[in-house]
Design a protein around this nucleic acid. Structure first.
Lengths: 230, 230
DNA sequence: TGTACATCAGTGAACGCGCGTTCACTGATGTAC
DNA sequence: TGTACATCAGTGAACGCGCGTTCACTGATGTAC
């Protein structure tokens, strides 16, 4: 059996990660990091099952096979753990970003739109519960969650808005549309439809139709009309 | 002083309302209806302040100036009260419905789209907190809230889908778009942008620009392209 | 290699608190005669 | 109009429960020599 956790014995000042700290401010060792991770996983599981921020510290600790007292060594409260999960999920978004810079001209535009939709849906499938909670808390006005959401979505929306502005400059898209508001609207389509695939499948819209529709709308709104109707 | 509650002394079998009942099944008198209403108002206030379903019965009762025991005479739990508020809010939607049957041809189409957006935003301003909670609970899978949401949105989405299908039949809109999925996408734009006016205003998008953008997108997607770019 | 000590990490037990829920009771309102 | 009674509506008090939070303590791990 090879020794696991070999990284724990490695360079002590590894500059890659910003050094996770306990509530007291102490830097965490490998065992503590493991425990903390177990708590996060437990919280994520419970969010998936229940949802909403009505989880109790006791419940999370129980699920993680540890005690509530331990939870308080790493997080001030349940929200802090949720916030961490939300930020973790957001780290995936950059992959979607590059897609926006793909080609939008002609038929290629539709393919680009499709790829974006696929990436978004994938993202939501993987983090459904946490993203839902992030959005709820943000909607309600919690500034920490609002910022987490903004950080995750802003780069995406801004780049998309640039495309809209480009097509506007080329005279293809109506000047009535505010580029950023348009991007935000398309973002909401992506989020909502990704979050509600089941409900729509229940209504007779299968996954591929949903993807095609979503991509079609994005393509049409960004580039201003369909190049060919077929 | 004229006698108030004169309706209470009127026809005992008034068929207009379906007769509200207590948890025990007894039909409620005027005083009880007032108390029940006070509890609902208190719950709505607290939802506006807090949000999420983490309100306690004790809290609602306190706000309503009554006791928890009284709450249980009218509602089984907090969710039941929330559900009632959600259904109440949904009763406003029919007003939006008729707008969809307005003219969509030419420049009139934009006006129609604008009216729809205005009505939707108004609806959300009035019931923000409750609608947010309804959607959250529905998202999480609670079937009662899912149904409440479906009942509120379905007629709207179905009529909108009909318009999309009409423009498809006329060869104006791509066949790639699934009519109902398209309507759902536009519905999500309406809901999200209505729910997030503040956030967008924070980003330099004012209310009118938001309205124009939202209407522009709806018009373009439903009718397939802008009639004139100006 | 072995031993002594320092620090890290985890936890049982305790405390008080506010909640959900129920029940027997009081007070208010309506009705029959 | 007045009185007796029935029903409606509201509530204080009680119960047990699980939670949040803290603290002194135990056990695990690392380190110096």
């Amino acid at each position: 059996m090879p020794p696991r956790n070999s990284e724990a014995t490695g360079a002590k000042g590894s500059p890659t990660a910003p050094a996770v700290k306990a509530q007291t401010g102490r830097v965490l060792g490998p065992r503590a990091l493991q425990t903390r991770q177990r708590l996060l996983v437990a919280a994520a599981e419970l969010f998936r099952e229940r949802s909403a921020l009505d989880l109790s510290v006791a419940e999370i600790a129980r699920r993680a096979g540890t005690s509530a007292a331990t939870f308080y060594q790493y997080f001030a409260d349940v929200e802090e753990a949720a916030l961490h999960l939300a930020r973790q999920a957001a780290e995936e978004m950059p992959a979607v970003l590059d897609l926006i810079d793909g080609p939008w001209q002609g038929e290629q535009g539709l393919v680009t739109a499709q790829r974006i939709v696929e990436a978004f849906m994938h993202h939501w499938e993987a983090h459904h519960a946490v993203l839902l909670i992030r959005n709820l808390a943000a909607d309600h006005g919690d500034p920490r969650f609002q910022e987490a959401r903004r950080r995750a979505l802003s780069p995406f929306l801004e780049r998309l808005a640039e495309r809209v502005a480009e097509f506007q400059a080329a005279g293809r898209v109506s000047d009535r549309l505010h580029p950023f508001a348009t991007a935000a609207a398309l973002g909401s389509v992506l989020e909502r439809l990704s979050a509600h695939t089941q409900e729509l499948e229940h209504r007779g819209v299968d996954h591929d139709e949903l993807l095609a529709t979503c991509a079609g709308i994005i393509h049409q709104v960004v580039t201003g009309g369909t190049p060919s109707l077929k």
